[in-house]
Design a protein around this nucleic acid. Structure first.
Length: 603
DNA sequence: CTAGGGTTAG
């Protein structure tokens, strides 16, 4: 940090402080460049027992200054013990030490952590206090950086973002040091929209992004499926003197593998070639991403070729590599090959972990080999590993699907013994199991147990129950559950509404079904293909073929593409009754006009 | 401080 920028920032901060103080306390008359006022520091009150003139104690200040600049942390520690932490903070501000060094000192971080954890102080009161601190060394901005870091580390991401915004209002100049971890936390929590806003705001405030900033935001965009924007950002990097790294490409490739549409693996391959052409060489993770991508694309043979290729390039497959392949093989029903691959990994000194076993448990379950899957559960323990929620959920769901509810419930009991807490997924599997066999009492018992254990019902739970009620011709009761969802702060999904529309159709109550569709649109869920399929079938069953045809055309006009089920309904319910819908004509004449370039819709 | 693997509803 140079003197020039420090001075400017100081002036800015002071201007800001003046206006703030005058709005809050016009009569305070606090000398902004002088002493630290006592009142705003009250937020450290638990630590602050007296108000002596410690802060002007010249000896202590120079001593601290000396120790900090020499980075004698252990001696500083003894001073901290003798004084109280609050005073120590003040001393640091008064001693003219390099801000960068202050930043490195963990004690301040510890203080801010405690402050953030206690949750006793609002963002605004903290900012007010910081803003009235004297700032001769430009350390206030750094303190705000540290504050945001403290929020992030205590997983209070929203507060971190609030502080980030407020820092802008107060004109504290933040650094990537706090912005990057905040962006990453936002991405990890799936708050991509907020991360994007924060990134744009960084640019506006001239906080220079670095490679890590870009990688983090690109990752967020990929996770949100905004692959185009992610690609555009790679171009923007150059303007900031950054060039893409292996991590950038790995992130992009993974984004395409997981979020891409048809031909996504082709696109992934193009990116792979692009990185190599730029002399950025794929590493283990690149291969792992591609191997997993091809496995998910049901192209295990391509994945196996990459597996061999990576070894040719002297890159060693690790647990993740094997897990992807084993999982891919299991999902193809190729259990024998999966098991021999597991032998292979033992031969190459790669130890299987819970994830490996979970994939195998799933493989056995899908083959209906529940006995073998169950044996594997005990094997995990024998290997000195602990089965986790996913292991149990996989097995429990398998038992539920074949109607062995007794076994499933027993496994839930075993979870408690092994101190693995059943989660909402566990309960959803079990509740769905009971609902399938019409045992609503069993389902209800589990709902009560959830209440006792403090596990909250989620969207899926409600969908299961709505589905069960609709199936039993109790759609009216299901509507009550729909209303209850809002009270619980859950927003019903397409599945929820479609299930209800279907329920009313099955009961022959078309009016109620159409009303439910109106309600769903009013509540912000546009009817989708499933909605139309369900309604069209309902109309057909009532013999209202003309009206069904009308809906068919309506769905085409809205640009919805009919799926396999639509065609089945058309063929079986309309054509077989001698009615010929004009579906093909519409498909040909309307579709080209409705095609809008995707980029145009992005903004 | 940035990238990779396992389950679940419909």
């Amino acid at each position: 940090m140079n003197v020039q920028s420090c001075f400017q920032s100081l002036k800015r901060a002071n201007r800001c402080q003046k206006t703030l103080i005058s709005t809050i306390d016009p009569s305070s008359g606090v000398s902004l460049l002088g002493n630290v006022p006592e009142t705003p520091l009250r937020f450290f009150s638990s630590l602050d027992s007296s108000h002596t003139s410690f802060i002007s104690d010249g000896y202590h200040i120079s001593r601290v200054s000396e120790l900090v600049s020499k980075q004698h942390w252990s001696e500083l520690k003894t001073i901290v013990r003798e004084t109280n932490p609050n005073r120590f903070l003040q001393l640091l501000f008064e001693s003219e030490v390099d801000a960068e060094i202050v930043l490195r000192y963990g004690e301040i971080r510890a203080q801010l952590h405690a402050l953030v954890k206690s949750e006793r102080h609002s963002n605004s009161s903290i900012f007010h206090t910081i803003s009235v601190w004297s700032d001769r060394f430009c350390s206030n901005s750094i303190i705000v950086d540290m504050l945001i870091l403290a929020y992030v580390k205590n997983s209070k991401t929203d507060s971190a973002f609030e502080a980030f915004e407020r820092a802008g209002d107060y004109r504290f100049k933040l650094s990537v040091l706090s912005c990057n971890p905040m962006l990453n936390a936002l991405v990890k929590e799936g708050k991509i929209g907020i991360a994007e806003t924060a990134y744009k705001e960084m640019i506006r405030r001239r906080i220079a992004p670095n490679l890590i900033t870009f990688n983090t935001v690109i990752n967020g965009l990929c996770k949100a499926g905004k692959l185009q924007k992610a690609g555009d950002l790679v171009e923007d990097m150059k303007a900031w003197g950054c060039s893409p790294s292996v991590i950038t490409y790995n992130t992009l490739i993974d984004g395409h593998c997981k979020m891409g549409r048809v031909g996504k693996m082709y696109k992934a391959d193009v990116l792979l070639k692009e990185m190599v052409s730029k002399n950025i060489f794929p590493n283990e993770i690149t291969f792992n991403i591609l191997i997993d991508g091809y496995c998910k694309d049901e192209n295990v043979s391509a994945a196996m070729k990459l597996f061999e290729e990576m070894q040719r390039q002297d890159l060693k497959p690790n647990v993740v590599t094997y897990n992807s392949l084993i999982n891919g093989l299991c999902n193809q029903g190729r259990l024998d090959e999966a098991l021999s691959l597991q032998d292979g990994m033992l031969g190459s000194n790669v130890k299987p972990n819970v994830v490996t076993y979970n994939a195998l448990v799933n493989g056995f379950s899908k083959k209906g080999m529940l006995k073998e899957a169950r044996v594997l559960l005990d094997d995990i323990a024998k290997q000195n590993m602990a089965p986790n929620v996913i292991t149990f959920n996989t097995l429990i769901d398998a038992y539920c699907k074949v109607g062995k509810m007794g076994e499933a419930i027993a496994l839930r009991g075993l979870m408690f013994d092994r101190e693995v807490c059943p989660d909402i997924s566990t309960y959803n599997c079990l509740i769905a199991g009971f609902c399938r066999e019409g045992n609503m009492e069993g389902a209800s018992n589990l709902l009560n147990e959830m209440g006792d254990k403090g596990v909250r019902a989620d969207l899926v739970t409600y969908n299961i129950l709505v589905g069960a009620l609709c199936r039993d011709g109790e759609s009216r009761k299901a509507v009550r559950l729909l209303n209850e969802m809002f009270e619980m702060g859950l927003s019903p999904s397409h599945v929820t509404y479609n299930t209800l529309v279907d329920g009313f159709c099955r009961e022959g109550n078309l009016k109620a079904a159409l009303n439910m569709r109106m309600r769903m649109e009013k509540e912000g869920r546009r009817a989708n293909v499933v909605t139309y399929n369900v309604l069209i079938r309902g109309l057909c069953l009532k013999g209202k073929l003309e009206e069904a045809n009308g809906l068919l055309n309506e769905m085409l006009e809205k640009g919805l593409i009919p799926n396999r089920i639509t065609y089945e309904i058309v063929r079986e319910e309309m054509m077989e009754k001698g009615f010929v819908p004009d579906i093909d004509g519409h498909l040909c004449s309307k579709k080209p006009h409705q095609r809008v370039p995707l980029q145009a819709l992005e903004f």
